[in-house]
Design a protein around this nucleic acid. Structure first.
Lengths: 216, 216
DNA sequence: CCATGAAATGAGAGTAGCTCTCAAAAGATG
DNA sequence: CATCTTTTGAGAGCTACTCTCATTTCATGG
Protein backbone atom coordinates (compact mmCIF):
# COMPACT_ATOMS: atom_id res chain seq x y z
CA UNK A 1 0.00 0.00 0.00
CA UNK A 2 2.55 2.51 1.05
CA UNK A 3 5.41 1.28 -1.05
CA UNK A 4 7.81 4.05 -1.73
CA UNK A 5 10.01 2.22 -4.16
CA UNK A 6 10.27 3.00 -7.79
CA UNK A 7 8.11 5.78 -9.07
CA UNK A 8 7.27 7.59 -5.90
CA UNK A 9 9.97 10.06 -4.99
CA UNK A 10 10.52 9.59 -1.30
CA UNK A 11 12.82 12.30 -0.05
CA UNK A 12 13.20 10.39 3.12
CA UNK A 13 14.47 6.85 3.25
CA UNK A 14 14.17 4.39 6.06
CA UNK A 15 16.78 5.24 8.71
CA UNK A 16 19.49 2.77 9.56
CA UNK A 17 18.23 2.39 13.09
CA UNK A 18 15.21 0.54 11.79
CA UNK A 19 16.92 -2.12 9.72
CA UNK A 20 16.56 -4.92 12.21
CA UNK A 21 12.92 -4.26 12.95
CA UNK A 22 10.37 -6.71 11.66
CA UNK A 23 8.73 -6.18 8.31
CA UNK A 24 5.69 -4.82 10.09
CA UNK A 25 7.57 -2.10 11.89
CA UNK A 26 9.48 -1.13 8.80
CA UNK A 27 6.30 -0.79 6.84
CA UNK A 28 4.85 1.44 9.51
CA UNK A 29 7.82 3.73 9.28
CA UNK A 30 7.45 3.79 5.52
CA UNK A 31 3.81 4.76 5.67
CA UNK A 32 4.58 7.40 8.23
CA UNK A 33 7.15 8.95 5.98
CA UNK A 34 4.99 8.59 2.92
CA UNK A 35 2.29 10.59 4.66
CA UNK A 36 4.69 13.28 5.77
CA UNK A 37 6.30 13.55 2.35
CA UNK A 38 2.93 13.77 0.65
CA UNK A 39 1.88 16.46 3.07
CA UNK A 40 4.98 18.56 2.59
CA UNK A 41 4.70 18.28 -1.18
CA UNK A 42 1.02 19.23 -1.25
CA UNK A 43 1.55 22.14 1.09
CA UNK A 44 4.33 23.46 -1.09
CA UNK A 45 2.02 23.23 -4.08
CA UNK A 46 -1.23 24.55 -2.64
CA UNK A 47 -0.63 25.88 0.82
CA UNK A 48 -1.73 24.43 4.12
CA UNK A 49 -5.42 25.18 4.20
CA UNK A 50 -6.09 24.14 0.64
CA UNK A 51 -4.58 20.75 1.37
CA UNK A 52 -7.11 18.28 2.67
CA UNK A 53 -6.43 15.09 4.51
CA UNK A 54 -8.15 13.24 1.72
CA UNK A 55 -5.62 14.58 -0.78
CA UNK A 56 -2.80 13.66 1.53
CA UNK A 57 -4.14 10.15 1.86
CA UNK A 58 -4.53 9.82 -1.86
CA UNK A 59 -0.99 10.93 -2.64
CA UNK A 60 0.46 8.80 0.11
CA UNK A 61 -1.57 5.87 -1.22
CA UNK A 62 -3.29 5.16 2.03
CA UNK A 63 -6.81 5.62 3.29
CA UNK A 64 -7.82 8.72 5.22
CA UNK A 65 -8.42 6.54 8.25
CA UNK A 66 -4.80 5.52 8.18
CA UNK A 67 -3.63 9.10 8.13
CA UNK A 68 -5.52 9.77 11.34
CA UNK A 69 -4.24 6.57 12.80
CA UNK A 70 -0.68 7.79 12.37
CA UNK A 71 -1.24 11.43 13.26
CA UNK A 72 -3.86 12.59 15.73
CA UNK A 73 -4.40 15.84 13.87
CA UNK A 74 -3.52 17.42 10.58
CA UNK A 75 -1.11 19.86 12.20
CA UNK A 76 0.81 16.99 13.72
CA UNK A 77 1.82 15.68 10.33
CA UNK A 78 3.90 18.78 9.87
CA UNK A 79 5.27 19.06 13.36
CA UNK A 80 6.19 15.54 14.28
CA UNK A 81 9.78 15.52 15.33
CA UNK A 82 10.81 14.60 18.75
CA UNK A 83 13.88 16.31 20.03
CA UNK A 84 12.64 16.32 23.57
CA UNK A 85 14.45 13.17 24.69
CA UNK A 86 17.64 14.45 23.12
CA UNK A 87 17.38 17.78 24.87
CA UNK A 88 16.64 16.11 28.15
CA UNK A 89 19.65 13.85 27.87
CA UNK A 90 21.96 16.70 26.93
CA UNK A 91 20.67 18.79 29.78
CA UNK A 92 21.24 16.06 32.32
CA UNK A 93 24.72 15.45 30.99
CA UNK A 94 25.87 18.95 31.86
CA UNK A 95 28.05 19.17 34.97
CA UNK A 96 26.02 19.77 38.09
CA UNK A 97 28.05 22.75 39.21
CA UNK A 98 27.69 24.65 35.95
CA UNK A 99 25.41 27.68 36.08
CA UNK A 100 21.93 26.61 35.01
CA UNK A 101 21.67 29.16 32.26
CA UNK A 102 24.95 28.05 30.77
CA UNK A 103 23.87 24.43 30.82
CA UNK A 104 20.73 25.38 28.99
CA UNK A 105 22.70 27.30 26.43
CA UNK A 106 25.02 24.41 25.71
CA UNK A 107 22.30 21.79 25.69
CA UNK A 108 20.09 23.75 23.33
CA UNK A 109 22.97 24.55 21.00
CA UNK A 110 24.00 20.94 20.86
CA UNK A 111 20.45 19.74 20.34
CA UNK A 112 20.06 22.11 17.41
CA UNK A 113 23.40 21.08 16.00
CA UNK A 114 22.53 17.40 16.22
CA UNK A 115 19.16 18.01 14.63
CA UNK A 116 20.79 19.71 11.70
CA UNK A 117 23.75 17.42 11.14
CA UNK A 118 21.57 14.40 11.55
CA UNK A 119 20.28 14.82 8.07
CA UNK A 120 21.31 18.22 6.75
CA UNK A 121 19.90 17.60 3.29
CA UNK A 122 16.18 18.15 3.67
CA UNK A 123 16.06 18.33 7.39
CA UNK A 124 16.94 21.98 7.04
CA UNK A 125 14.55 22.39 4.16
CA UNK A 126 11.70 21.05 6.24
CA UNK A 127 12.74 23.18 9.16
CA UNK A 128 12.36 26.28 7.02
CA UNK A 129 8.96 25.23 5.72
CA UNK A 130 7.88 24.38 9.22
CA UNK A 131 9.08 27.77 10.41
CA UNK A 132 7.07 29.49 7.69
CA UNK A 133 3.98 27.52 8.55
CA UNK A 134 4.47 28.35 12.17
CA UNK A 135 4.33 32.04 11.34
CA UNK A 136 1.55 31.86 8.78
CA UNK A 137 -0.86 29.17 9.91
CA UNK A 138 -2.48 29.75 13.30
CA UNK A 139 -3.35 26.11 13.78
CA UNK A 140 0.22 25.06 13.33
CA UNK A 141 1.50 27.78 15.62
CA UNK A 142 -1.04 26.75 18.20
CA UNK A 143 0.00 23.16 18.04
CA UNK A 144 3.61 24.13 18.33
CA UNK A 145 2.86 26.17 21.41
CA UNK A 146 1.24 23.13 22.93
CA UNK A 147 4.25 21.00 22.24
CA UNK A 148 6.46 23.76 23.59
CA UNK A 149 4.63 23.57 26.85
CA UNK A 150 5.41 19.86 26.98
CA UNK A 151 9.07 20.62 26.44
CA UNK A 152 8.69 23.24 29.14
CA UNK A 153 7.55 20.66 31.65
CA UNK A 154 10.53 18.56 30.74
CA UNK A 155 12.95 21.42 31.20
CA UNK A 156 11.16 22.23 34.41
CA UNK A 157 11.74 18.78 35.82
CA UNK A 158 15.39 18.82 34.82
CA UNK A 159 15.99 22.24 36.33
CA UNK A 160 14.12 21.38 39.50
CA UNK A 161 16.37 18.39 39.97
CA UNK A 162 19.44 20.47 39.26
CA UNK A 163 18.61 23.25 41.67
CA UNK A 164 17.22 21.08 44.41
CA UNK A 165 13.67 22.27 44.16
CA UNK A 166 10.33 20.55 43.89
CA UNK A 167 9.22 20.19 40.29
CA UNK A 168 6.06 22.01 41.22
CA UNK A 169 7.91 24.96 42.62
CA UNK A 170 6.43 28.12 41.14
CA UNK A 171 9.76 29.71 40.37
CA UNK A 172 11.10 26.77 38.36
CA UNK A 173 7.89 26.33 36.46
CA UNK A 174 7.66 29.98 35.63
CA UNK A 175 11.31 30.16 34.71
CA UNK A 176 11.05 27.19 32.38
CA UNK A 177 7.92 28.36 30.64
CA UNK A 178 9.30 31.85 30.34
CA UNK A 179 12.28 30.36 28.61
CA UNK A 180 10.12 28.39 26.23
CA UNK A 181 8.09 31.42 25.35
CA UNK A 182 11.23 33.35 24.64
CA UNK A 183 12.71 30.58 22.54
CA UNK A 184 9.53 30.20 20.54
CA UNK A 185 9.64 33.90 19.83
CA UNK A 186 13.22 33.48 18.75
CA UNK A 187 12.13 30.88 16.22
CA UNK A 188 9.43 33.17 14.94
CA UNK A 189 11.90 36.03 14.65
CA UNK A 190 14.21 33.74 12.76
CA UNK A 191 11.43 32.52 10.46
CA UNK A 192 10.25 36.06 9.76
CA UNK A 193 13.75 36.88 8.61
CA UNK A 194 13.50 33.95 6.19
CA UNK A 195 15.80 31.87 8.34
CA UNK A 196 18.81 33.87 7.21
CA UNK A 197 20.06 34.76 10.69
CA UNK A 198 22.35 32.49 12.60
CA UNK A 199 19.99 30.65 14.87
CA UNK A 200 22.51 29.69 17.56
CA UNK A 201 23.52 33.31 17.86
CA UNK A 202 19.91 34.38 18.27
CA UNK A 203 19.51 31.77 20.96
CA UNK A 204 22.53 33.16 22.77
CA UNK A 205 21.10 36.64 22.70
CA UNK A 206 17.79 35.30 23.90
CA UNK A 207 19.26 33.48 26.85
CA UNK A 208 21.26 36.57 27.71
CA UNK A 209 18.04 38.36 28.61
CA UNK A 210 17.48 35.85 31.41
CA UNK A 211 18.74 35.72 34.93
CA UNK A 212 20.45 32.60 36.05
CA UNK A 213 18.17 30.36 38.05
CA UNK A 214 19.66 30.22 41.57
CA UNK A 215 19.91 27.03 43.53
CA UNK A 216 17.92 26.44 46.62
CA UNK B 1 -35.31 36.47 20.08
CA UNK B 2 -32.65 36.98 22.64
CA UNK B 3 -34.79 38.66 25.23
CA UNK B 4 -33.39 38.07 28.64
CA UNK B 5 -36.26 39.46 30.60
CA UNK B 6 -38.59 37.37 32.66
CA UNK B 7 -37.90 33.65 32.69
CA UNK B 8 -34.35 33.51 31.54
CA UNK B 9 -31.95 34.03 34.40
CA UNK B 10 -29.29 36.29 33.00
CA UNK B 11 -26.50 36.55 35.49
CA UNK B 12 -25.17 39.45 33.58
CA UNK B 13 -27.21 42.57 32.95
CA UNK B 14 -26.63 45.23 30.37
CA UNK B 15 -23.80 47.44 31.62
CA UNK B 16 -24.40 51.12 32.32
CA UNK B 17 -21.98 52.16 29.64
CA UNK B 18 -24.44 50.92 27.02
CA UNK B 19 -27.54 52.77 28.11
CA UNK B 20 -27.39 55.47 25.48
CA UNK B 21 -26.73 53.11 22.60
CA UNK B 22 -29.49 52.52 20.09
CA UNK B 23 -31.89 49.65 20.54
CA UNK B 24 -29.95 47.70 17.98
CA UNK B 25 -26.66 47.94 19.82
CA UNK B 26 -28.26 47.10 23.12
CA UNK B 27 -29.85 44.03 21.64
CA UNK B 28 -26.53 42.93 20.28
CA UNK B 29 -24.99 43.17 23.72
CA UNK B 30 -27.89 41.19 25.10
CA UNK B 31 -27.52 38.33 22.66
CA UNK B 32 -23.82 38.34 23.22
CA UNK B 33 -24.34 37.91 26.92
CA UNK B 34 -27.13 35.42 26.44
CA UNK B 35 -24.77 33.26 24.42
CA UNK B 36 -22.01 33.51 26.99
CA UNK B 37 -24.34 32.78 29.89
CA UNK B 38 -25.82 29.81 28.11
CA UNK B 39 -22.36 28.52 27.37
CA UNK B 40 -21.12 28.86 30.93
CA UNK B 41 -24.23 27.18 32.28
CA UNK B 42 -24.03 24.27 29.86
CA UNK B 43 -20.35 23.76 30.49
CA UNK B 44 -20.95 23.64 34.20
CA UNK B 45 -23.63 21.02 33.64
CA UNK B 46 -21.98 18.81 31.04
CA UNK B 47 -18.41 19.89 30.53
CA UNK B 48 -16.87 21.61 27.57
CA UNK B 49 -16.68 18.89 24.96
CA UNK B 50 -20.15 17.56 25.55
CA UNK B 51 -21.57 20.99 24.96
CA UNK B 52 -22.33 21.59 21.30
CA UNK B 53 -22.86 24.91 19.63
CA UNK B 54 -26.34 23.77 18.75
CA UNK B 55 -27.20 23.37 22.42
CA UNK B 56 -25.74 26.74 23.18
CA UNK B 57 -27.81 28.32 20.45
CA UNK B 58 -30.93 26.61 21.68
CA UNK B 59 -30.52 27.73 25.26
CA UNK B 60 -29.59 31.25 24.25
CA UNK B 61 -32.66 31.26 22.01
CA UNK B 62 -30.65 32.08 18.96
CA UNK B 63 -29.80 30.23 15.79
CA UNK B 64 -26.45 28.48 15.46
CA UNK B 65 -25.54 30.87 12.67
CA UNK B 66 -25.87 33.74 15.08
CA UNK B 67 -23.56 32.14 17.58
CA UNK B 68 -20.85 31.97 14.97
CA UNK B 69 -21.60 35.49 13.92
CA UNK B 70 -20.82 36.70 17.42
CA UNK B 71 -17.91 34.42 18.19
CA UNK B 72 -15.50 33.17 15.55
CA UNK B 73 -14.94 29.90 17.39
CA UNK B 74 -16.43 27.94 20.22
CA UNK B 75 -13.43 28.60 22.45
CA UNK B 76 -13.87 32.33 22.02
CA UNK B 77 -17.22 32.26 23.75
CA UNK B 78 -15.45 31.33 26.93
CA UNK B 79 -12.43 33.57 26.57
CA UNK B 80 -13.80 36.82 25.33
CA UNK B 81 -12.66 39.50 27.69
CA UNK B 82 -10.42 42.23 26.55
CA UNK B 83 -8.09 43.60 29.13
CA UNK B 84 -5.44 44.39 26.57
CA UNK B 85 -6.35 48.05 26.10
CA UNK B 86 -6.49 48.50 29.86
CA UNK B 87 -3.08 46.95 30.35
CA UNK B 88 -1.62 49.03 27.57
CA UNK B 89 -2.95 52.24 29.06
CA UNK B 90 -1.73 51.41 32.54
CA UNK B 91 1.68 50.51 31.19
CA UNK B 92 2.01 53.78 29.31
CA UNK B 93 0.92 55.73 32.34
CA UNK B 94 3.87 54.57 34.40
CA UNK B 95 6.63 57.16 34.81
CA UNK B 96 9.27 56.90 32.12
CA UNK B 97 12.16 56.70 34.55
CA UNK B 98 10.76 53.80 36.54
CA UNK B 99 12.53 50.46 36.04
CA UNK B 100 10.71 48.54 33.33
CA UNK B 101 10.11 45.49 35.46
CA UNK B 102 8.57 47.60 38.20
CA UNK B 103 6.27 49.28 35.72
CA UNK B 104 5.14 45.92 34.50
CA UNK B 105 4.52 44.75 38.02
CA UNK B 106 2.37 47.76 38.86
CA UNK B 107 0.48 47.77 35.59
CA UNK B 108 -0.34 44.08 35.78
CA UNK B 109 -1.42 44.32 39.39
CA UNK B 110 -3.67 47.22 38.68
CA UNK B 111 -5.13 45.56 35.60
CA UNK B 112 -5.99 42.51 37.65
CA UNK B 113 -7.44 44.61 40.42
CA UNK B 114 -9.61 46.55 38.02
CA UNK B 115 -10.78 43.38 36.36
CA UNK B 116 -11.86 41.96 39.69
CA UNK B 117 -13.45 45.02 41.27
CA UNK B 118 -15.26 45.78 38.05
CA UNK B 119 -17.76 43.11 38.83
CA UNK B 120 -16.58 41.00 41.72
CA UNK B 121 -19.79 38.98 41.90
CA UNK B 122 -19.50 36.48 39.08
CA UNK B 123 -16.51 37.98 37.36
CA UNK B 124 -14.41 35.99 39.78
CA UNK B 125 -16.62 32.98 39.37
CA UNK B 126 -16.12 33.02 35.65
CA UNK B 127 -12.43 33.59 36.07
CA UNK B 128 -12.20 30.42 38.08
CA UNK B 129 -14.17 28.43 35.54
CA UNK B 130 -12.06 29.86 32.77
CA UNK B 131 -8.93 28.95 34.66
CA UNK B 132 -10.14 25.39 35.05
CA UNK B 133 -11.00 25.13 31.38
CA UNK B 134 -7.61 26.50 30.52
CA UNK B 135 -5.98 23.65 32.40
CA UNK B 136 -8.35 20.91 31.28
CA UNK B 137 -9.36 21.68 27.71
CA UNK B 138 -6.51 21.81 25.21
CA UNK B 139 -8.49 23.86 22.72
CA UNK B 140 -9.15 26.55 25.26
CA UNK B 141 -5.57 26.58 26.41
CA UNK B 142 -4.44 26.83 22.84
CA UNK B 143 -6.71 29.73 22.15
CA UNK B 144 -5.54 31.47 25.27
CA UNK B 145 -1.96 31.03 24.22
CA UNK B 146 -2.79 32.69 20.94
CA UNK B 147 -4.35 35.64 22.68
CA UNK B 148 -1.38 35.78 25.02
CA UNK B 149 0.87 36.22 22.05
CA UNK B 150 -1.25 39.17 20.97
CA UNK B 151 -0.85 40.70 24.40
CA UNK B 152 2.84 39.94 24.08
CA UNK B 153 3.09 42.03 20.93
CA UNK B 154 1.36 44.82 22.73
CA UNK B 155 3.71 44.66 25.69
CA UNK B 156 6.57 44.44 23.24
CA UNK B 157 5.59 47.70 21.55
CA UNK B 158 5.17 49.47 24.85
CA UNK B 159 8.51 48.27 26.16
CA UNK B 160 10.29 49.09 22.92
CA UNK B 161 9.03 52.63 23.16
CA UNK B 162 10.03 52.87 26.78
CA UNK B 163 13.55 51.60 26.32
CA UNK B 164 14.22 53.37 23.06
CA UNK B 165 14.44 50.29 20.93
CA UNK B 166 12.88 49.23 17.68
CA UNK B 167 9.75 47.18 18.23
CA UNK B 168 11.30 44.45 16.16
CA UNK B 169 14.38 44.31 18.30
CA UNK B 170 15.03 40.69 19.20
CA UNK B 171 15.72 41.37 22.84
CA UNK B 172 12.45 43.21 23.48
CA UNK B 173 10.42 40.68 21.61
CA UNK B 174 12.00 37.80 23.40
CA UNK B 175 11.72 39.53 26.73
CA UNK B 176 8.04 40.25 26.24
CA UNK B 177 7.11 36.80 25.09
CA UNK B 178 9.17 35.26 27.84
CA UNK B 179 7.16 37.30 30.26
CA UNK B 180 3.88 36.20 28.75
CA UNK B 181 4.89 32.58 28.88
CA UNK B 182 5.82 32.95 32.52
CA UNK B 183 2.59 34.74 33.36
CA UNK B 184 0.51 32.13 31.61
CA UNK B 185 2.26 29.47 33.64
CA UNK B 186 1.47 31.48 36.73
CA UNK B 187 -2.21 31.39 35.85
CA UNK B 188 -2.03 27.66 35.31
CA UNK B 189 -0.28 27.18 38.63
CA UNK B 190 -2.95 29.26 40.26
CA UNK B 191 -5.74 27.32 38.57
CA UNK B 192 -4.21 23.99 39.51
CA UNK B 193 -4.30 25.10 43.13
CA UNK B 194 -8.01 25.76 42.69
CA UNK B 195 -7.41 29.50 42.63
CA UNK B 196 -6.78 29.56 46.35
CA UNK B 197 -3.42 31.30 46.19
CA UNK B 198 -3.12 35.03 46.14
CA UNK B 199 -2.69 35.77 42.45
CA UNK B 200 -0.96 39.14 42.84
CA UNK B 201 1.61 37.57 45.10
CA UNK B 202 2.25 34.81 42.57
CA UNK B 203 2.71 37.45 39.91
CA UNK B 204 5.26 39.22 42.08
CA UNK B 205 7.23 36.05 42.54
CA UNK B 206 7.03 35.40 38.84
CA UNK B 207 8.35 38.80 37.88
CA UNK B 208 11.10 38.42 40.43
CA UNK B 209 12.62 35.67 38.32
CA UNK B 210 13.22 38.18 35.52
CA UNK B 211 16.00 40.60 34.90
CA UNK B 212 15.08 44.18 34.38
CA UNK B 213 15.08 45.13 30.71
CA UNK B 214 17.87 47.67 30.27
CA UNK B 215 17.49 50.79 28.19
CA UNK B 216 19.37 51.29 25.01
C1' DC C 1 -46.78 57.51 11.03
C1' DC C 2 -45.32 55.37 7.27
C1' DA C 3 -42.01 54.21 3.45
C1' DT C 4 -37.52 53.23 2.28
C1' DG C 5 -32.88 51.61 3.21
C1' DA C 6 -29.68 49.10 6.20
C1' DA C 7 -28.53 45.73 9.34
C1' DA C 8 -29.31 41.45 11.91
C1' DT C 9 -31.28 36.97 11.85
C1' DG C 10 -32.66 32.21 10.53
C1' DA C 11 -32.75 28.37 7.57
C1' DG C 12 -30.28 25.37 5.07
C1' DA C 13 -26.79 23.38 2.33
C1' DG C 14 -22.00 22.26 2.18
C1' DT C 15 -17.06 21.30 3.68
C1' DA C 16 -13.52 19.27 6.36
C1' DG C 17 -11.49 17.41 10.42
C1' DC C 18 -11.96 13.69 13.30
C1' DT C 19 -14.05 9.28 15.62
C1' DC C 20 -15.80 4.70 15.65
C1' DT C 21 -17.00 0.24 13.99
C1' DC C 22 -16.39 -3.83 11.47
C1' DA C 23 -14.85 -6.86 8.07
C1' DA C 24 -10.92 -7.90 5.01
C1' DA C 25 -5.93 -8.12 4.31
C1' DA C 26 -1.21 -8.83 5.80
C1' DG C 27 2.46 -10.07 8.97
C1' DA C 28 3.96 -13.11 12.89
C1' DT C 29 4.26 -17.70 14.93
C1' DG C 30 4.43 -22.64 15.81
C1' DC D 1 0.27 -24.47 6.25
C1' DA D 2 -2.99 -22.99 9.93
C1' DT D 3 -3.91 -19.90 13.40
C1' DC D 4 -3.59 -15.67 15.89
C1' DT D 5 -2.70 -10.79 15.98
C1' DT D 6 -2.06 -6.41 13.99
C1' DT D 7 -2.98 -3.18 10.44
C1' DT D 8 -5.84 -1.43 7.04
C1' DG D 9 -9.90 0.28 4.28
C1' DA D 10 -14.58 1.38 3.79
C1' DG D 11 -18.07 3.85 5.40
C1' DA D 12 -21.24 5.92 8.54
C1' DG D 13 -21.60 9.72 11.70
C1' DC D 14 -20.69 13.84 14.50
C1' DT D 15 -19.50 18.62 14.98
C1' DA D 16 -17.27 22.93 14.20
C1' DC D 17 -17.42 26.25 10.86
C1' DT D 18 -18.63 28.82 6.20
C1' DC D 19 -21.66 30.79 2.75
C1' DT D 20 -25.79 32.16 0.63
C1' DC D 21 -30.26 34.04 0.48
C1' DA D 22 -34.75 35.20 1.94
C1' DT D 23 -37.02 37.27 5.95
C1' DT D 24 -37.36 39.99 9.82
C1' DT D 25 -36.11 43.99 12.61
C1' DC D 26 -34.39 48.46 13.51
C1' DA D 27 -33.13 53.31 11.83
C1' DT D 28 -34.33 57.50 9.24
C1' DG D 29 -36.40 61.20 6.58
C1' DG D 30 -40.44 62.86 4.86
Amino acid sequence: MADNDGMTTARTSVPEAARHLGLRERKKLKTRMAIRDATYALIKEQGYDATTVEQIAERAEVSPSTVFRYFPAKEDIVLTDEYDPLLERLLRERPADEPVLESLRRAIREAMATALTDDPAHEQDEMVLRARLMVEVPQVRSRLMESMSVTGRLVCRALAERTGRHENDLEVRVYSMGLMGALLETMIYWAEGDCRDDLPELVDRTLATFKDLPRR
